[in-house]
Design a binder for these strands. Structure first.
Length: 508
RNA sequence: GCGGGCGUAGCUCAAUGGUAGAGCGUCAGCCUUCCAAGCUGAAUGUUGAGGGUUCGAGUCCCUUCGCCCGCUCCA
Protein backbone atom coordinates (compact mmCIF):
# COMPACT_ATOMS: atom_id res chain seq x y z
CA UNK A 1 0.00 0.00 0.00
CA UNK A 2 1.48 3.28 -1.03
CA UNK A 3 -1.18 5.64 0.32
CA UNK A 4 -0.91 6.95 3.81
CA UNK A 5 -4.26 5.52 4.80
CA UNK A 6 -4.63 2.03 6.11
CA UNK A 7 -6.58 -0.07 3.65
CA UNK A 8 -6.21 -3.57 5.06
CA UNK A 9 -5.79 -5.31 8.37
CA UNK A 10 -2.79 -7.24 9.54
CA UNK A 11 -4.56 -10.59 9.69
CA UNK A 12 -5.26 -10.42 5.94
CA UNK A 13 -1.54 -10.09 5.33
CA UNK A 14 -0.69 -12.82 7.83
CA UNK A 15 -3.20 -15.04 6.08
CA UNK A 16 -1.67 -14.41 2.66
CA UNK A 17 1.82 -15.02 4.04
CA UNK A 18 0.72 -18.43 5.24
CA UNK A 19 -1.33 -19.25 2.14
CA UNK A 20 1.38 -18.31 -0.32
CA UNK A 21 4.41 -19.61 1.54
CA UNK A 22 5.98 -16.41 2.83
CA UNK A 23 5.88 -16.92 6.60
CA UNK A 24 4.56 -19.74 8.79
CA UNK A 25 4.17 -19.93 12.58
CA UNK A 26 7.19 -21.77 14.00
CA UNK A 27 6.69 -25.29 15.42
CA UNK A 28 3.11 -25.14 14.22
CA UNK A 29 2.34 -28.86 14.36
CA UNK A 30 3.29 -28.84 18.05
CA UNK A 31 1.03 -25.90 18.84
CA UNK A 32 3.50 -23.18 17.95
CA UNK A 33 5.98 -21.25 20.06
CA UNK A 34 5.44 -17.67 21.11
CA UNK A 35 7.67 -15.16 19.37
CA UNK A 36 9.15 -17.34 16.64
CA UNK A 37 8.34 -17.61 12.95
CA UNK A 38 9.56 -19.68 10.03
CA UNK A 39 10.15 -18.24 6.59
CA UNK A 40 8.59 -20.24 3.77
CA UNK A 41 10.06 -20.53 0.27
CA UNK A 42 8.86 -17.12 -0.91
CA UNK A 43 9.62 -15.40 2.39
CA UNK A 44 13.12 -16.81 2.36
CA UNK A 45 13.64 -15.58 -1.19
CA UNK A 46 12.34 -12.13 -0.29
CA UNK A 47 14.50 -11.88 2.82
CA UNK A 48 17.57 -13.17 1.01
CA UNK A 49 17.05 -10.64 -1.78
CA UNK A 50 16.83 -7.83 0.77
CA UNK A 51 19.92 -9.14 2.58
CA UNK A 52 21.96 -9.56 -0.61
CA UNK A 53 21.01 -6.13 -1.86
CA UNK A 54 22.12 -4.56 1.41
CA UNK A 55 25.42 -6.43 1.29
CA UNK A 56 26.01 -5.40 -2.31
CA UNK A 57 25.07 -1.75 -1.74
CA UNK A 58 26.86 -1.33 1.60
CA UNK A 59 29.86 -3.66 1.44
CA UNK A 60 30.65 -4.55 -2.16
CA UNK A 61 29.95 -1.17 -3.72
CA UNK A 62 29.06 1.38 -1.07
CA UNK A 63 28.12 4.92 -2.08
CA UNK A 64 30.77 7.65 -2.35
CA UNK A 65 31.52 9.47 0.87
CA UNK A 66 30.67 13.12 1.64
CA UNK A 67 33.97 14.24 0.09
CA UNK A 68 33.29 12.32 -3.11
CA UNK A 69 35.83 9.59 -2.40
CA UNK A 70 35.17 5.88 -2.12
CA UNK A 71 34.45 4.61 1.37
CA UNK A 72 35.88 1.37 2.73
CA UNK A 73 33.66 -1.26 4.32
CA UNK A 74 34.62 -4.86 5.04
CA UNK A 75 32.42 -7.78 6.00
CA UNK A 76 32.39 -9.97 9.08
CA UNK A 77 30.50 -12.96 10.43
CA UNK A 78 31.14 -13.37 14.13
CA UNK A 79 29.91 -16.08 16.51
CA UNK A 80 26.46 -15.83 18.03
CA UNK A 81 27.86 -17.01 21.36
CA UNK A 82 30.81 -15.09 22.77
CA UNK A 83 32.59 -14.93 26.11
CA UNK A 84 29.99 -13.92 28.70
CA UNK A 85 32.10 -10.93 29.73
CA UNK A 86 31.31 -9.35 26.37
CA UNK A 87 27.78 -8.63 27.55
CA UNK A 88 28.90 -7.23 30.87
CA UNK A 89 31.18 -4.85 29.02
CA UNK A 90 28.49 -3.91 26.52
CA UNK A 91 26.07 -3.08 29.31
CA UNK A 92 23.55 -5.70 28.28
CA UNK A 93 23.78 -7.84 31.40
CA UNK A 94 22.87 -4.81 33.51
CA UNK A 95 20.75 -2.87 31.09
CA UNK A 96 18.80 -5.83 29.82
CA UNK A 97 17.58 -6.89 33.20
CA UNK A 98 14.98 -4.34 34.06
CA UNK A 99 13.13 -5.39 37.23
CA UNK A 100 9.43 -4.75 36.84
CA UNK A 101 6.76 -4.10 39.43
CA UNK A 102 3.07 -4.75 38.87
CA UNK A 103 0.17 -3.21 40.75
CA UNK A 104 -2.33 -5.93 41.58
CA UNK A 105 -5.16 -3.45 41.84
CA UNK A 106 -4.72 -1.15 38.85
CA UNK A 107 -2.88 -3.72 36.70
CA UNK A 108 -0.34 -1.02 35.91
CA UNK A 109 3.27 -2.05 35.37
CA UNK A 110 6.27 0.01 36.35
CA UNK A 111 10.00 -0.29 35.94
CA UNK A 112 11.21 -0.76 39.50
CA UNK A 113 14.15 1.58 38.96
CA UNK A 114 11.75 4.30 37.83
CA UNK A 115 9.80 4.24 41.09
CA UNK A 116 10.71 6.41 44.06
CA UNK A 117 9.20 6.30 47.52
CA UNK A 118 8.06 8.97 49.92
CA UNK A 119 7.73 8.46 53.66
CA UNK A 120 7.60 10.39 56.91
CA UNK A 121 11.10 11.02 58.18
CA UNK A 122 12.04 8.67 61.00
CA UNK A 123 8.81 6.71 60.72
CA UNK A 124 9.40 3.00 60.25
CA UNK A 125 5.85 1.74 60.75
CA UNK A 126 3.65 4.09 58.72
CA UNK A 127 2.68 3.93 55.09
CA UNK A 128 5.06 4.61 52.25
CA UNK A 129 3.97 6.25 49.02
CA UNK A 130 5.48 5.35 45.65
CA UNK A 131 5.69 7.74 42.73
CA UNK A 132 7.13 7.73 39.26
CA UNK A 133 10.56 9.37 39.18
CA UNK A 134 10.57 12.59 37.22
CA UNK A 135 6.78 12.82 37.09
CA UNK A 136 5.70 15.99 38.96
CA UNK A 137 2.05 14.98 39.12
CA UNK A 138 2.90 11.58 40.50
CA UNK A 139 5.14 13.10 43.16
CA UNK A 140 2.46 15.64 44.11
CA UNK A 141 -0.12 12.87 44.41
CA UNK A 142 2.16 10.86 46.69
CA UNK A 143 2.83 13.90 48.84
CA UNK A 144 -0.87 14.63 49.11
CA UNK A 145 -1.66 11.05 50.09
CA UNK A 146 1.08 11.11 52.72
CA UNK A 147 -0.19 14.41 54.15
CA UNK A 148 -3.70 13.01 54.33
CA UNK A 149 -2.36 9.91 56.10
CA UNK A 150 -0.47 11.88 58.77
CA UNK A 151 -3.19 14.57 58.78
CA UNK A 152 -0.88 17.59 58.44
CA UNK A 153 0.97 19.60 55.84
CA UNK A 154 4.56 18.55 55.34
CA UNK A 155 7.64 20.49 54.35
CA UNK A 156 10.49 18.85 52.37
CA UNK A 157 12.41 18.45 55.64
CA UNK A 158 9.70 16.22 57.07
CA UNK A 159 9.96 13.50 54.43
CA UNK A 160 12.40 10.87 53.30
CA UNK A 161 12.71 9.59 49.76
CA UNK A 162 14.38 6.44 48.51
CA UNK A 163 14.37 4.05 45.57
CA UNK A 164 11.61 1.48 45.60
CA UNK A 165 14.23 -1.19 44.97
CA UNK A 166 15.78 -0.32 48.35
CA UNK A 167 12.64 -1.27 50.28
CA UNK A 168 12.41 -4.47 52.31
CA UNK A 169 9.53 -6.89 51.82
CA UNK A 170 7.92 -5.56 55.00
CA UNK A 171 8.19 -1.98 53.76
CA UNK A 172 6.82 -2.94 50.35
CA UNK A 173 3.77 -4.43 52.10
CA UNK A 174 2.87 -1.00 53.50
CA UNK A 175 3.66 0.87 50.31
CA UNK A 176 0.90 2.55 48.32
CA UNK A 177 1.27 2.38 44.55
CA UNK A 178 1.39 5.51 42.40
CA UNK A 179 -2.11 5.04 41.01
CA UNK A 180 -3.99 3.56 43.97
CA UNK A 181 -5.00 4.44 47.52
CA UNK A 182 -4.41 1.06 49.10
CA UNK A 183 -1.18 -0.29 50.51
CA UNK A 184 0.43 -3.58 49.57
CA UNK A 185 -0.83 -3.81 46.00
CA UNK A 186 2.65 -3.70 44.45
CA UNK A 187 4.37 -6.97 43.62
CA UNK A 188 8.00 -7.63 44.45
CA UNK A 189 10.30 -6.42 41.68
CA UNK A 190 10.54 -9.20 39.13
CA UNK A 191 13.48 -9.72 36.87
CA UNK A 192 12.88 -10.04 33.16
CA UNK A 193 15.73 -11.83 31.48
CA UNK A 194 15.98 -10.19 28.12
CA UNK A 195 18.96 -12.26 26.98
CA UNK A 196 18.66 -15.98 26.31
CA UNK A 197 21.28 -17.96 28.12
CA UNK A 198 22.65 -21.45 27.76
CA UNK A 199 25.78 -23.24 28.89
CA UNK A 200 28.91 -24.44 27.17
CA UNK A 201 30.82 -27.59 27.98
CA UNK A 202 29.87 -30.63 29.99
CA UNK A 203 29.52 -28.94 33.37
CA UNK A 204 26.41 -26.86 33.79
CA UNK A 205 26.91 -24.11 36.35
CA UNK A 206 27.16 -20.32 36.64
CA UNK A 207 30.68 -20.33 35.25
CA UNK A 208 29.63 -22.14 32.10
CA UNK A 209 26.75 -19.75 31.42
CA UNK A 210 26.84 -17.99 28.06
CA UNK A 211 24.41 -15.77 26.18
CA UNK A 212 22.94 -15.73 22.72
CA UNK A 213 23.82 -12.34 21.28
CA UNK A 214 21.10 -9.70 21.56
CA UNK A 215 22.74 -7.69 18.78
CA UNK A 216 25.35 -8.39 16.11
CA UNK A 217 27.24 -5.17 16.83
CA UNK A 218 29.39 -6.46 19.70
CA UNK A 219 30.98 -9.12 17.49
CA UNK A 220 32.25 -6.29 15.34
CA UNK A 221 33.82 -4.39 18.24
CA UNK A 222 35.47 -7.60 19.45
CA UNK A 223 37.18 -7.94 16.10
CA UNK A 224 38.14 -4.31 15.65
CA UNK A 225 41.84 -5.02 16.28
CA UNK A 226 41.82 -8.12 14.11
CA UNK A 227 40.39 -6.25 11.15
CA UNK A 228 42.76 -3.30 11.56
CA UNK A 229 45.74 -5.65 11.85
CA UNK A 230 44.88 -7.86 8.90
CA UNK A 231 42.89 -5.90 6.34
CA UNK A 232 45.03 -2.78 5.71
CA UNK A 233 42.06 -0.55 6.50
CA UNK A 234 42.44 3.03 7.69
CA UNK A 235 40.05 5.07 9.77
CA UNK A 236 37.51 6.06 8.62
CA UNK A 237 36.22 2.64 7.59
CA UNK A 238 33.30 0.36 8.34
CA UNK A 239 32.73 -3.25 9.34
CA UNK A 240 29.43 -4.79 8.30
CA UNK A 241 27.67 -7.87 9.54
CA UNK A 242 24.36 -9.62 8.90
CA UNK A 243 23.08 -12.21 11.29
CA UNK A 244 20.62 -13.51 13.80
CA UNK A 245 20.13 -11.93 17.18
CA UNK A 246 17.97 -13.05 20.09
CA UNK A 247 15.97 -11.13 22.64
CA UNK A 248 13.63 -12.72 25.12
CA UNK A 249 10.99 -10.06 24.59
CA UNK A 250 8.43 -9.64 27.34
CA UNK A 251 5.67 -9.47 24.79
CA UNK A 252 6.41 -10.66 21.25
CA UNK A 253 3.80 -8.93 19.16
CA UNK A 254 2.76 -7.84 15.72
CA UNK A 255 3.75 -10.79 13.52
CA UNK A 256 7.50 -10.75 12.87
CA UNK A 257 7.90 -7.12 13.99
CA UNK A 258 8.85 -8.04 17.54
CA UNK A 259 9.99 -11.64 17.60
CA UNK A 260 12.46 -13.31 19.90
CA UNK A 261 14.73 -14.45 17.10
CA UNK A 262 15.41 -11.98 14.32
CA UNK A 263 18.03 -10.78 11.88
CA UNK A 264 20.02 -7.59 11.81
CA UNK A 265 22.13 -5.83 9.20
CA UNK A 266 24.61 -3.63 10.96
CA UNK A 267 27.50 -1.38 10.06
CA UNK A 268 29.90 -0.03 12.62
CA UNK A 269 31.54 2.98 11.00
CA UNK A 270 34.79 3.94 12.75
CA UNK A 271 35.90 7.54 12.45
CA UNK A 272 37.71 10.32 14.24
CA UNK A 273 35.65 12.15 16.84
CA UNK A 274 35.98 15.42 14.92
CA UNK A 275 34.37 13.85 11.85
CA UNK A 276 31.56 12.02 13.65
CA UNK A 277 28.90 14.64 12.95
CA UNK A 278 29.70 14.63 9.25
CA UNK A 279 29.56 10.84 9.00
CA UNK A 280 26.40 10.70 11.06
CA UNK A 281 24.64 12.96 8.59
CA UNK A 282 26.10 10.94 5.74
CA UNK A 283 24.79 7.62 7.02
CA UNK A 284 21.38 9.02 7.81
CA UNK A 285 21.09 10.14 4.19
CA UNK A 286 22.54 6.95 2.72
CA UNK A 287 20.34 4.65 4.73
CA UNK A 288 17.23 6.71 4.19
CA UNK A 289 17.62 6.72 0.42
CA UNK A 290 18.52 3.03 0.40
CA UNK A 291 15.15 2.05 1.86
CA UNK A 292 13.48 4.27 -0.69
CA UNK A 293 15.44 2.61 -3.51
CA UNK A 294 13.81 -0.72 -2.76
CA UNK A 295 10.31 0.65 -2.90
CA UNK A 296 9.62 2.10 0.55
CA UNK A 297 8.69 5.59 -0.53
CA UNK A 298 6.28 8.36 0.22
CA UNK A 299 4.34 8.94 3.39
CA UNK A 300 4.89 5.48 4.84
CA UNK A 301 8.55 6.04 5.66
CA UNK A 302 10.14 8.76 7.72
CA UNK A 303 13.23 9.75 9.63
CA UNK A 304 12.82 10.70 13.26
CA UNK A 305 15.26 12.07 15.79
CA UNK A 306 15.04 10.44 19.20
CA UNK A 307 13.95 12.54 22.12
CA UNK A 308 16.72 12.90 24.68
CA UNK A 309 14.90 10.82 27.27
CA UNK A 310 14.74 7.76 25.02
CA UNK A 311 18.43 7.66 24.17
CA UNK A 312 20.10 4.31 24.64
CA UNK A 313 22.81 3.79 27.22
CA UNK A 314 25.51 4.00 24.55
CA UNK A 315 24.09 6.92 22.57
CA UNK A 316 26.30 9.96 22.31
CA UNK A 317 24.44 13.10 23.19
CA UNK A 318 26.16 15.14 20.49
CA UNK A 319 24.47 13.57 17.49
CA UNK A 320 21.83 11.46 19.16
CA UNK A 321 19.96 8.73 17.33
CA UNK A 322 17.90 8.80 14.19
CA UNK A 323 15.24 6.25 13.46
CA UNK A 324 14.13 5.27 10.02
CA UNK A 325 10.55 4.30 10.63
CA UNK A 326 7.82 2.69 8.62
CA UNK A 327 4.09 3.09 9.00
CA UNK A 328 3.00 -0.49 9.58
CA UNK A 329 -0.71 -1.36 9.62
CA UNK A 330 -0.43 -2.11 13.35
CA UNK A 331 1.30 1.17 14.13
CA UNK A 332 -0.91 3.26 11.84
CA UNK A 333 -1.19 6.22 12.01
CA UNK A 334 2.07 5.97 13.98
CA UNK A 335 5.35 4.45 12.88
CA UNK A 336 7.57 1.52 13.89
CA UNK A 337 11.34 1.34 13.80
CA UNK A 338 13.07 -0.19 10.78
CA UNK A 339 16.56 1.06 11.42
CA UNK A 340 18.36 3.19 13.94
CA UNK A 341 21.38 5.28 13.05
CA UNK A 342 23.20 5.87 16.32
CA UNK A 343 26.29 7.78 17.32
CA UNK A 344 27.77 5.37 19.84
CA UNK A 345 30.77 7.58 20.58
CA UNK A 346 33.69 5.41 21.66
CA UNK A 347 31.56 3.79 24.35
CA UNK A 348 31.90 0.22 23.11
CA UNK A 349 35.60 0.25 22.33
CA UNK A 350 36.41 1.94 25.61
CA UNK A 351 34.28 -0.52 27.57
CA UNK A 352 35.88 -3.51 25.87
CA UNK A 353 39.30 -1.99 26.42
CA UNK A 354 38.47 -1.59 30.10
CA UNK A 355 36.96 -5.05 30.59
CA UNK A 356 39.43 -7.00 28.41
CA UNK A 357 42.52 -5.02 29.42
CA UNK A 358 43.53 -5.07 25.75
CA UNK A 359 44.50 -1.87 23.96
CA UNK A 360 42.00 -1.06 21.25
CA UNK A 361 43.27 2.40 20.32
CA UNK A 362 43.94 3.11 16.68
CA UNK A 363 47.17 4.77 15.57
CA UNK A 364 46.51 7.35 12.88
CA UNK A 365 49.69 7.80 10.79
CA UNK A 366 48.46 10.93 9.04
CA UNK A 367 47.52 12.67 12.25
CA UNK A 368 50.33 11.03 14.24
CA UNK A 369 47.76 10.44 16.92
CA UNK A 370 46.52 7.44 18.88
CA UNK A 371 42.82 7.37 19.74
CA UNK A 372 39.70 5.29 20.20
CA UNK A 373 37.61 5.90 17.09
CA UNK A 374 34.06 7.08 17.44
CA UNK A 375 31.37 4.92 15.95
CA UNK A 376 28.37 5.70 13.78
CA UNK A 377 26.08 2.69 13.68
CA UNK A 378 23.41 2.21 11.04
CA UNK A 379 21.59 -0.82 12.49
CA UNK A 380 18.82 -2.17 10.30
CA UNK A 381 16.34 -4.92 10.98
CA UNK A 382 16.37 -7.49 8.19
CA UNK A 383 13.26 -9.18 9.58
CA UNK A 384 11.53 -5.86 10.04
CA UNK A 385 12.62 -4.76 6.59
CA UNK A 386 11.11 -7.91 5.15
CA UNK A 387 7.88 -7.17 7.01
CA UNK A 388 7.86 -3.59 5.74
CA UNK A 389 8.29 -4.86 2.18
CA UNK A 390 5.37 -7.24 2.66
CA UNK A 391 3.20 -4.48 4.14
CA UNK A 392 4.14 -2.02 1.42
CA UNK A 393 3.51 -4.56 -1.32
CA UNK A 394 0.11 -5.75 -0.11
CA UNK A 395 -2.41 -4.12 -2.44
CA UNK A 396 -6.10 -5.01 -2.31
CA UNK A 397 -7.76 -4.88 -5.71
CA UNK A 398 -11.37 -6.06 -5.79
CA UNK A 399 -11.38 -5.85 -9.59
CA UNK A 400 -8.88 -8.60 -10.17
CA UNK A 401 -9.28 -12.33 -9.78
CA UNK A 402 -6.94 -12.68 -6.82
CA UNK A 403 -8.52 -9.66 -5.04
CA UNK A 404 -5.02 -8.71 -3.92
CA UNK A 405 -1.55 -8.49 -5.37
CA UNK A 406 1.91 -8.01 -3.91
CA UNK A 407 3.54 -5.01 -5.57
CA UNK A 408 7.16 -5.83 -4.76
CA UNK A 409 9.90 -3.80 -6.37
CA UNK A 410 11.26 -6.11 -9.13
CA UNK A 411 14.72 -6.03 -7.50
CA UNK A 412 13.53 -7.79 -4.36
CA UNK A 413 10.55 -9.80 -5.61
CA UNK A 414 10.86 -13.46 -4.57
CA UNK A 415 9.81 -14.50 -8.06
CA UNK A 416 11.09 -12.02 -10.60
CA UNK A 417 9.44 -13.44 -13.69
CA UNK A 418 7.25 -16.30 -14.89
CA UNK A 419 7.26 -17.98 -18.28
CA UNK A 420 3.96 -19.53 -19.43
CA UNK A 421 2.82 -21.30 -22.54
CA UNK A 422 -0.64 -19.92 -23.29
CA UNK A 423 -1.87 -23.50 -23.63
CA UNK A 424 -0.07 -26.76 -23.08
CA UNK A 425 0.24 -27.86 -26.69
CA UNK A 426 1.31 -26.90 -30.23
CA UNK A 427 4.95 -26.61 -29.22
CA UNK A 428 4.34 -23.77 -26.77
CA UNK A 429 5.53 -25.64 -23.66
CA UNK A 430 8.82 -26.42 -25.38
CA UNK A 431 9.51 -22.78 -26.22
CA UNK A 432 8.50 -21.75 -22.72
CA UNK A 433 10.82 -24.30 -21.16
CA UNK A 434 13.68 -23.06 -23.32
CA UNK A 435 13.12 -19.42 -22.35
CA UNK A 436 12.73 -20.35 -18.66
CA UNK A 437 16.02 -22.28 -18.76
CA UNK A 438 17.83 -19.26 -20.14
CA UNK A 439 16.33 -16.72 -17.74
CA UNK A 440 16.85 -18.77 -14.60
CA UNK A 441 20.60 -18.56 -15.10
CA UNK A 442 20.37 -15.01 -13.85
CA UNK A 443 16.97 -14.39 -12.25
CA UNK A 444 14.43 -16.11 -10.02
CA UNK A 445 12.04 -17.38 -12.66
CA UNK A 446 9.27 -19.97 -12.57
CA UNK A 447 7.34 -21.74 -15.29
CA UNK A 448 3.95 -23.44 -15.18
CA UNK A 449 1.97 -25.31 -17.83
CA UNK A 450 -1.10 -26.30 -15.88
CA UNK A 451 -4.55 -24.71 -15.87
CA UNK A 452 -5.86 -21.56 -17.47
CA UNK A 453 -3.62 -18.61 -18.17
CA UNK A 454 -5.81 -16.36 -15.98
CA UNK A 455 -5.35 -18.64 -13.03
CA UNK A 456 -1.60 -18.64 -13.49
CA UNK A 457 -1.52 -14.83 -13.73
CA UNK A 458 -3.61 -14.60 -10.56
CA UNK A 459 -1.21 -16.87 -8.68
CA UNK A 460 1.69 -14.70 -9.73
CA UNK A 461 -0.20 -11.62 -8.50
CA UNK A 462 -0.36 -13.04 -4.98
CA UNK A 463 3.27 -14.12 -5.12
CA UNK A 464 4.22 -10.63 -6.26
CA UNK A 465 5.87 -11.65 -9.53
CA UNK A 466 6.19 -8.44 -11.59
CA UNK A 467 6.36 -9.90 -15.12
CA UNK A 468 4.86 -12.87 -16.91
CA UNK A 469 6.10 -13.85 -20.37
CA UNK A 470 3.53 -15.80 -22.35
CA UNK A 471 4.29 -17.91 -25.38
CA UNK A 472 1.33 -18.19 -27.73
CA UNK A 473 0.54 -19.76 -31.10
CA UNK A 474 2.27 -16.98 -32.99
CA UNK A 475 5.56 -17.13 -31.08
CA UNK A 476 7.02 -19.90 -33.22
CA UNK A 477 6.52 -17.84 -36.38
CA UNK A 478 7.00 -14.22 -35.23
CA UNK A 479 9.53 -14.89 -32.45
CA UNK A 480 7.66 -12.64 -30.03
CA UNK A 481 6.07 -13.09 -26.59
CA UNK A 482 3.49 -11.21 -24.55
CA UNK A 483 4.67 -9.44 -21.38
CA UNK A 484 1.98 -9.17 -18.74
CA UNK A 485 2.62 -6.45 -16.14
CA UNK A 486 1.52 -7.26 -12.61
CA UNK A 487 0.61 -3.78 -11.38
CA UNK A 488 -1.38 -2.61 -14.39
CA UNK A 489 -2.36 -5.97 -15.88
CA UNK A 490 -1.34 -4.38 -19.16
CA UNK A 491 0.13 -6.48 -21.94
CA UNK A 492 2.72 -5.72 -24.56
CA UNK A 493 4.49 -7.79 -27.15
CA UNK A 494 8.27 -7.97 -27.32
CA UNK A 495 10.77 -10.03 -29.30
CA UNK A 496 11.70 -13.37 -27.81
CA UNK A 497 15.40 -12.52 -27.99
CA UNK A 498 14.79 -9.24 -26.15
CA UNK A 499 13.35 -10.84 -23.01
CA UNK A 500 16.71 -10.99 -21.24
CA UNK A 501 17.36 -7.37 -22.15
CA UNK A 502 13.91 -6.46 -20.82
CA UNK A 503 14.73 -8.21 -17.55
CA UNK A 504 18.09 -6.44 -17.28
CA UNK A 505 16.42 -3.09 -17.67
CA UNK A 506 13.50 -3.73 -15.34
CA UNK A 507 15.07 -5.95 -12.71
CA UNK A 508 18.79 -5.32 -12.98
C1' G B 1 3.27 -10.68 33.47
C1' C B 2 -2.14 -8.50 33.81
C1' G B 3 -7.10 -7.69 31.43
C1' G B 4 -10.31 -8.66 27.14
C1' G B 5 -11.32 -11.42 22.54
C1' C B 6 -10.42 -15.71 19.55
C1' G B 7 -8.84 -20.92 18.24
C1' U B 8 -13.27 -26.09 13.50
C1' A B 9 -9.86 -28.49 6.27
C1' G B 10 -4.14 -24.83 3.34
C1' C B 11 -7.33 -19.89 3.81
C1' U B 12 -12.18 -17.50 5.29
C1' C B 13 -16.00 -19.24 8.12
C1' A B 14 -20.85 -22.47 9.41
C1' A B 15 -22.81 -26.37 12.67
C1' U B 16 -29.84 -25.91 19.33
C1' G B 17 -25.32 -30.73 24.06
C1' G B 18 -27.22 -35.48 19.25
C1' U B 19 -24.09 -38.10 11.78
C1' A B 20 -18.24 -32.41 11.51
C1' G B 21 -19.98 -28.92 6.72
C1' A B 22 -19.62 -24.82 2.87
C1' G B 23 -16.98 -21.38 -0.23
C1' C B 24 -12.29 -20.46 -1.99
C1' G B 25 -7.58 -22.66 -2.63
C1' U B 26 -4.76 -27.26 -3.82
C1' C B 27 -4.33 -31.73 -6.90
C1' A B 28 -5.95 -35.01 -11.22
C1' G B 29 -8.60 -35.47 -15.95
C1' C B 30 -11.23 -33.13 -19.96
C1' C B 31 -11.45 -28.44 -22.12
C1' U B 32 -9.13 -23.79 -23.11
C1' U B 33 -5.18 -19.18 -28.22
C1' C B 34 -4.48 -13.93 -22.82
C1' C B 35 -6.81 -12.85 -16.86
C1' A B 36 -8.89 -17.71 -10.73
C1' A B 37 -13.95 -19.53 -17.38
C1' G B 38 -16.66 -24.36 -17.75
C1' C B 39 -17.33 -29.66 -16.69
C1' U B 40 -15.93 -34.21 -13.87
C1' G B 41 -13.51 -36.09 -9.85
C1' A B 42 -9.99 -36.35 -5.52
C1' A B 43 -7.23 -35.40 -1.14
C1' U B 44 -7.10 -32.83 3.48
C1' G B 45 -9.88 -32.62 10.47
C1' U B 46 -7.57 -36.62 16.97
C1' U B 47 -12.66 -29.34 16.10
C1' G B 48 -4.96 -26.14 19.14
C1' A B 49 -3.51 -29.76 23.31
C1' G B 50 -4.76 -32.32 27.99
C1' G B 51 -8.29 -33.46 31.67
C1' G B 52 -13.50 -33.25 33.62
C1' U B 53 -19.18 -33.22 33.55
C1' U B 54 -22.66 -36.16 30.43
C1' C B 55 -25.90 -41.84 27.65
C1' G B 56 -23.55 -38.35 24.25
C1' A B 57 -19.01 -32.41 24.01
C1' G B 58 -16.88 -28.43 18.32
C1' U B 59 -20.64 -26.65 21.90
C1' C B 60 -20.53 -26.75 29.21
C1' C B 61 -16.31 -26.65 33.22
C1' C B 62 -10.87 -26.70 34.50
C1' U B 63 -5.75 -26.55 32.91
C1' U B 64 -2.34 -25.46 29.17
C1' C B 65 -0.45 -23.64 24.36
C1' G B 66 -0.95 -20.19 20.38
C1' C B 67 -2.93 -15.75 17.81
C1' C B 68 -5.25 -10.72 18.06
C1' C B 69 -6.38 -6.04 20.99
C1' G B 70 -5.23 -2.94 25.38
C1' C B 71 -1.62 -2.20 29.47
C1' U B 72 3.61 -2.96 30.15
C1' C B 73 8.14 -3.50 27.56
C1' C B 74 10.92 -2.27 23.14
C1' A B 75 18.20 -1.66 25.96
Amino acid sequence: MSESTQTYSMHELVSLCKRRGFIYPASEIYGGINGFWDYGPLGTALKNNLRDLWWRDMVQRPPLGPDGNEVSIVGLDSAIIQNAKVWEASGHVGGFNDPMVDCRETKARYRADHLMCLGLKGDRSGQIYAYVDGDEDSLAAAQKKLEKYVKKALSPDDVDTCQLTALSAEELAVTVGPDTKNAGTLTEPRQFNLMFDTTTGAIRNEDSKVYLRPETAQGIFLNFNNVVDTMRVKVPFGIAQIGKAFRNEVTPRNFIFRSREFEQMEIEWFCHEDDAEKWFEFWCDVRSSWWQSIGLTGANIMMRKHDDDELAHYAKEGCGTFDIEYRFPFTHPGFGELEGVAHRGNYDLSRHQEFSKKKLAYFDQAKNERYLPHVIEPSAGLSRGTLALLCEAYTPDPDRASKVYMAFHPKIAPIQAAVFPLVGKDGMPEIAHQLWSELRERWDVVTDVKQSIGKRYARMDEAGCPFCFTIDGDTASDQAVTVRHRDTQAQERIALDQVATFMSEKVG
